[in-house]
Amino acid sequence: MTGDLVFFVSGGMLFLACLLKLPAVVRTRGRDWLLSSICALLLVGSGVLFLTAPSAVTFLRRATGVTNIAVPAIYILLTAFSGASIVLVLNWRGGPDILQTRRLSRLTIWIYGTCCVLIAVLFALGNTPVEERFRFDTYYATTPYIREMIALYVVAHAAATFTASRLCWRWSHEVHGTLRTGLRILAAGYLMHYAGYDPAVAVAVGARWAGHNWDFLIEFARLMTAPSAVLVAAGFMIPLLGQRGEEAVRYWQLGPLAHALRPVEGASSPVLLALPWWRPHMRLRLTQRQTFISDRIVSCKGYFDARIRDEARAAALARGAAHETASAIAEAAMIAAAVELHRHCSREGFTPAPAESGQNVGHTADLAHISRVVRSPIVRDMKRRVRTDARA
């Protein structure tokens, strides 16, 4: 069971990533090529790792009664995984010519689908009476039809991993953030395949053709399988989870500002949809919070006073704050003061003339930055002073 753990954990990571994308595929009914290719790749990849576990190989042989049946099954899944990798990267990157991307995707599917069929046919035509769990490639390297199956698999796999790694690396230079990180991890994972696994298998098989025994290379190739699979799984999951993580962080960062604007009455509010507990919908929650904040800032716009902003900025700079932080504190103080005036005037039933220099907010600081400083001492002091003045 210990030997199976790495394969099951790696496969579970891919399967988890597939489950995260599956609801979106169902909603689009498979019409989104990008989502469909992601799910296909992750599902096939998890199947490869689950089936590669030693206990799974034994179970499959006993269940079917066919000697070495796990080998063509793994080859077919790995070949399908290779083709799905290229299709995914093509659709993930996109481009101005959507039809060209679709044509290349269909061509890749056709080529690798044909390779999968040929692997099954060649295995059926060949003869593998001796069960070889670890040295199948070299043991049957000279067996008719089986040698062609092995060569077809290695060539198809190496070509796909090289193409996918190159596409991911080149694309990573054009993007930033978690997407760049994920692409470079993917490139490294595919690199371990075509620069480590595939050459080791090819050289070991070629040595058998030449009458030599270099079976130790097969063990080296097996050692490359799990780490490369983990890198590929992480490469796909990091952009997916990274985007949700960034949305969750921003939602949390905007919390203090949303709380500070809550006393503003009369502003329109976004319709809060019922969100199931098993689907976080963080992007929708973030949109709702941003809309909540924007509507209340618009309602308070007539109460913005540039004098309060300038005074708060000067106070922040005097206390040693950086210019960016001082700008955020200044706008936070202006918003807090406007909220106090708006609440006081609404309670008293009248609306005074707006300040001479009503200002728009958000030009000098990001809303998340403003939210981080909205509870600073300068903002609290300004808010307290405006409340006292309003009562007087």
Results as ranks from 00 to 15, higher is better:
residue 3 G to A: 10
residue 3 G to C: 08
residue 3 G to Y: 12
residue 6 V to A: 15
residue 15 F to R: 08
residue 18 C to P: 02
residue 19 L to R: 14
residue 21 K to A: 05
residue 24 A to M: 09
residue 24 A to Y: 03
residue 24 A to S: 13
residue 30 G to V: 00
residue 31 R to P: 00
residue 34 L to C: 05
residue 39 C to M: 06
residue 40 A to Y: 09
residue 41 L to C: 13
residue 51 L to G: 09
residue 51 L to N: 09
residue 55 S to T: 10
residue 59 F to A: 11
residue 65 G to T: 01
residue 71 V to S: 11
residue 72 P to D: 02
residue 77 L to F: 04
residue 79 T to E: 03
residue 82 S to H: 03
residue 87 V to G: 02
residue 89 V to D: 00
residue 93 R to L: 00
residue 97 D to H: 05
residue 99 L to M: 10
residue 103 R to A: 00
residue 104 L to Y: 02
residue 117 V to I: 10
residue 122 L to V: 01
residue 135 R to Y: 15
residue 136 F to N: 02
residue 139 Y to E: 05
residue 145 Y to R: 03
residue 148 E to P: 15
residue 151 A to L: 15
residue 152 L to N: 01
residue 163 T to H: 03
residue 166 R to N: 06
residue 172 S to K: 02
residue 175 V to P: 05
residue 175 V to N: 06
residue 177 G to N: 11
residue 179 L to S: 12
residue 194 Y to L: 01
residue 198 D to S: 15
residue 203 V to C: 13
residue 209 W to C: 12
residue 219 E to Q: 12
residue 228 S to E: 15
residue 228 S to R: 14
residue 231 L to V: 04
residue 233 A to G: 10
residue 238 I to A: 09
residue 239 P to G: 08
residue 241 L to M: 09
residue 241 L to G: 12
residue 246 E to C: 12
residue 251 Y to D: 08
residue 251 Y to I: 10
residue 259 H to E: 14
residue 260 A to Q: 10
residue 261 L to F: 06
residue 262 R to S: 10
residue 264 V to W: 12
residue 273 L to F: 07
residue 284 L to K: 06
residue 289 R to E: 08
residue 310 D to S: 12
residue 311 E to K: 15
residue 315 A to S: 08
residue 317 L to D: 09
residue 318 A to C: 08
residue 332 A to G: 04
residue 343 R to L: 15
residue 358 G to D: 08
residue 372 R to W: 12
residue 374 V to N: 04
residue 376 S to W: 08
residue 377 P to G: 10
residue 382 M to R: 10
residue 391 R to I: 08
